[in-house]
Write a protein that binds this DNA or RNA. Structure first.
Length: 344
DNA sequence: TAGGCCATCTGGTCCT
DNA sequence: AGGACCAGATGGCCTA
């Protein structure tokens, strides 16, 4: 059974139960006097003569109303109204579910994805916007971006919890790329096509200067919290070399699936042209890692993982799923980006 | 308990 | 006429 059909049925069922408790319906089925108030504005053209309601709108006390005469609400009309309303509600629910599905797909695309720590809708959209802008800026300039600038652009306008989350996914310490507070700086991205990344991160975070950022959204996957090697202060960068980091003698659990990870080199590219990739040891890496629930090297749910959204799975139809955990799409992207850097 | 986030209902508007 | 889209209202859940 497809999800939509199932949802439809569930929706109707829940609708029927909800309707019984709908405050607008007065909460009492069968109360004819109260039901007449609910579709108060409903104007029906055809007269239902078969079932006249005991509507007492002949009240002598009421002033004469101008305009089209309000039709009486018969039982049949009320019933039709209810059915229409139920159908509209079900459609609206489905529509919103579709919207949420699309948003869930977007969550898996942006450089910060965790099954347990979902980005809010608004933050997902903001991050996606920043991500698109940052990538397009890279393509436009054709130069390897500065890591700090890139991450700053990525986190621009995001709340601190989200910034922490992104930083955790990228294995960065938020303190290292968030500048000092600039209270008067407006929160906005420069227009598309601007010459360079914004120099400052403008989100005002109360915790920025106070010290370590607070844990975002309550609990968080340990692997998503920026790691700190014991006994070492935070460096400007804490790159996530080779996907596995040993901290305190324990193998660091990589993030669930940060699509974009910052490595010391072009990890995907080096498989193809290791020599060329070596030139970029200090450059920003566009290796796109879809860790998925399986951890390092795992495939993302979005590309056909168990329980994945079929609508997200449309991406897979295009044969984008590659080998080695890299999709055709991301290899194409890596190749393009790396080609740009190589040529520049 | 306040605030944030979310799902749902609802009525209005526009389009086919 | 009916469906899609939108925005406001409302209530529930969760966290600090």
């Amino acid at each position: 059974m497809t999800r939509s059909v199932q949802e439809e049925q569930e929706s109707v069922e829940s609708e029927q139960t909800q309707e019984l408790h709908s405050p607008i319906e007065g909460g009492e089925e069968g109360g004819e006097e109260e039901e007449e108030d609910s579709p108060h504005h409903l104007e029906e053209e055809e007269e239902e003569d078969d079932e006249e309601e005991e509507e007492d709108d002949d009240g002598e006390n009421k002033p004469k109303r101008r305009g089209p005469k309000k039709k009486k609400m018969t039982k049949a009309r009320i019933q039709r109204f209810k059915v229409r309303r139920m159908k509209a509600n079900a459609r609206e629910r489905n529509r919103m579910h579709g919207l949420n599905d699309a948003l869930e797909c977007l969550r898996k695309i942006v450089p910060c994805y965790s099954k347990t720590q979902k980005l809010s809708k608004i933050e997902t959209l903001r991050l996606a916007k920043n991500y698109i802008w940052a990538l397009s800026e890279v393509l436009r300039s054709g130069k390897a971006p500065d890591v700090m600038s890139f991450v700053q652009a990525l986190c621009k306008g995001l709340s601190q919890p989200t910034t922490n989350l992104v930083a955790g996914c990228l294995q960065l310490n938020p303190r290292t790329f968030l500048p000092e507070q600039t209270p008067d700086l407006p929160v906005h991205l420069p227009p598309a096509g601007a010459a360079s990344y914004p120099g400052h991160y403008s989100y005002q975070s109360p915790g920025l200067t106070a010290g370590l950022p607070s844990p975002p959204y309550g609990t968080m996957e340990p692997s998503h919290i920026f790691h700190q090697v014991k006994g070492q202060p935070y460096g400007p960068l804490e790159p996530f070399f080779d996907g596995v980091l040993v901290t305190d003698g324990q193998a660091f659990d990589p993030p669930l699936s940060p699509p974009l990870s910052i490595n010391g080199n072009f990890s995907s590219f080096k498989h193809e042209t290791a020599a060329a990739a070596a030139d970029y040891d200090k450059s920003f890496s566009f290796s796109v890692h879809y860790g998925g629930a399986g951890g390092a090297g795992g495939h993302p749910a979005i590309y056909g993982g168990g329980g994945s959204n079929p609508r997200c799975g449309e991406l897979q139809v295009d044969g984008m799923m590659g080998f080695d955990g890299h999709t055709h799409h991301e290899r194409m992207m890596n190749a393009q980006l790396n080609a740009i850097f190589h040529d520049s």
